[in-house]
Amino acid sequence: MAKKQKSEATKSDPFDRIARLLAMIAVKNLEKEEAARRLLSVGFDSPQIGGILGVGPNFANVAKSRSPKSKG
């Protein structure tokens, strides 16, 4: 009999799960574009941000390109 494959959630590292949970808490009251920019700034990649925010994997890249440019 073949073994059942584990789902992605059960394969993940416990520290990764904790990081995702903390990220969700940290950005829970922000608009999704601002949340994506903040998560990018602390090292999450686009697919991870998509999973955290419940959007497509390319959403973070689009949000980054739409960010207001600083004058200076």
Score class of each variant (00 low, 15 high):
I18D: 12
A35K: 09
K3T: 15
A2N: 15
E31C: 05
V55Y: 09
V62R: 12
A26Q: 13
R66T: 10
S65K: 14
D13P: 09
S67E: 10
I49M: 01
G50E: 03
V55A: 13
R20K: 13
K64A: 15
L21W: 12
E31V: 07
A9F: 11
S65Y: 04
S41L: 03
K3R: 15
A35E: 05
A9P: 02
I25F: 10
K69R: 12
P68N: 11
P57K: 06
V55M: 11
L39D: 00
S65C: 05
A19Q: 06
K28A: 06
D13G: 05
R37Q: 15
S46H: 12
A2K: 15
L53I: 03
K11V: 06
S12A: 14
A23D: 07
A26C: 10
N29V: 05
K28S: 07
R66V: 03
L21R: 14
R38M: 08
V62T: 14
A35Y: 07
P68F: 08
L39T: 00
S7W: 07
G50D: 01
A2F: 15
Q5R: 13
S46N: 15
K3A: 15
M1H: 12
L53A: 07
E8N: 12
K28R: 06
M1W: 11
K64Y: 14
K32Y: 04
P68W: 10
I52H: 00
E8A: 13
M1T: 12
A36D: 00
K4L: 12
S41T: 03
D13L: 11
G51Q: 04
R66W: 05
E34N: 07
K32R: 10
E31Y: 06
K64N: 14
K6Y: 14
V27D: 01
G72E: 14
L30N: 05
A36K: 01
A60P: 03
A19Y: 05
N29G: 04
K64M: 13
L21S: 15
I25Y: 11
I25T: 08
S12P: 02
I52G: 00
V55P: 03
K11S: 05
K32M: 04
N58Y: 10
A23V: 02
E34P: 02
N58F: 04
L22Y: 09
V42A: 02
S70V: 10
K28P: 00
P68R: 14
L22E: 13
A2M: 12
L40F: 03
T10V: 11
S7K: 11
E31F: 05
K32Q: 05
G51W: 01
L21C: 08
K4A: 13
G54A: 00
N29C: 06
K11N: 05
R37Y: 08
A63K: 02
